[in-house]
Design a binder for these strands. Structure first.
Lengths: 212, 212
DNA sequence: ACCTGAACACCGTTCAAGT
DNA sequence: ACCTGAACACCGTTCAAGT
């Protein structure tokens, strides 16, 4: 005899997001999610293939949120100001919901991660601003440089790496100002120096280069 | 009746390092380590408090290795060249042993991480080079900017974030050249721009700022 | 149809019993 | 002293049985 559904995919994802933010990814257990939506853990498998798919759905939702935030931050039309505002927005998001942020950017099985196009769309306006600043020839490298710095800086903040004291806000402003200035100067030929020696890496993991 | 020891703390840590590099941190299970050293998992608890302590000991060993590599990379005495070589060495290490690298820099329970002073010692020569380049007033911010960029770039490589194609080596060289140039220019007053608006973050997690 | 208890495989960890 | 099997608590996941 048919039974009315007692929960839904949306409710499960929503509960998962809440648990993720409060209890971290490790705390996101199937039985915790189940009890949050009022069923037992085996019932979740009617709505979701496995825990990996649940994480994936949560990651997609987070990617959309972050994209909205970044997009909303670019308001002036001036690429320098907009770029700074977008990086600030990325950082603010990471501070507010570190577990969600980490879900987007840390190494996880591919099947767990957000859809690549969703993730790409989240940072697309950032790429555009860098393109305007650095010129189309350097858009990709420039954006990668800014994004890499922002990711690394935020990562260090979130993982408590700033243990030498000093003013973290000052270090952030220093990095942002100098990077944006350097990107803006990239229209002219790259600075000299660092010549004669090859760019090192003897061994690069195959899949670290491949596009996927 | 006393029984001769069938293994040792050192053998356990060594086996753990091998398993970490080949099977990732998740694959580093107590029973896998135990069978690698020829005992059953309960016996490991005679040498090691728990899995967390084992991870901590491995992290310490990795930190020392990385410190050696970074230190050995600075050979010329010229801060620009040495800084570039040290960042290259950091990247090469990450490519060769990504799981070890990640153990050092990803978020883990404090008790699992390398001793802070060991980690600090590993990047200390890098700080010195930045100090020479940027002047003592900007050593800390400068080093944090370079380290943040390097961490972020390597993280993106290792997590497969470079999915837009393009030449990753070129992006690396672009970032390294521009950053080092920007740091070198920091002796003069910081670039203008980005004025009038506050540096954003509305909410900062308490422990993200604290030094520990 | 949907839900559940019971069961399974797999962790880390403890402990009484063996040598 | 050191080692081990058995046991426990905790995962994710499957499935037969219930409604």
């Amino acid at each position: 005899m048919p039974t009315p559904a007692r929960t839904s995919r949306e409710a499960i994802v929503a509960a998962g997001r809440t648990i993720l933010d409060s209890d971290s990814l490790d705390g996101l257990t199937m039985s915790r999610v189940a009890s949050a939506v009022g069923v037992r853990s085996p019932s979740l498998y009617k709505r979701v293939r496995d825990r990996g798919e649940l994480v994936h759905l949560i990651a997609n939702a987070v990617a959309e949120d972050l994209g909205d935030r970044v997009r909303a931050a670019a308001t002036t039309g001036d690429p320098r100001r907009d770029l700074r505002a977008m990086v600030d927005a990325l950082r603010a998001f990471a501070h507010e919901r570190p577990e969600s942020y980490r879900l987007l950017f840390s190494r996880l099985p591919d099947a767990w991660r957000a859809d690549p196009d969703l993730a790409a769309r989240a940072v697309e306006p950032l790429f555009r601003a860098v393109g305007e600043l650095a010129g189309p020839d350097h858009e990709l490298e420039g954006a990668r440089t800014v994004v890499a710095w922002a990711r690394g800086f935020i990562d260090m903040e979130l993982s408590g790496s700033f243990k030498l004291g000093g003013d973290v806000e000052r270090a952030y402003a220093f990095g942002a100002d100098h990077l944006i200035a350097a990107i803006g100067a990239a229209r002219r030929p790259a600075p000299p120096m660092t010549g004669d020696r090859p760019a090192t890496p003897r061994k690069v993991r195959p899949d670290a280069r491949r596009d996927r």
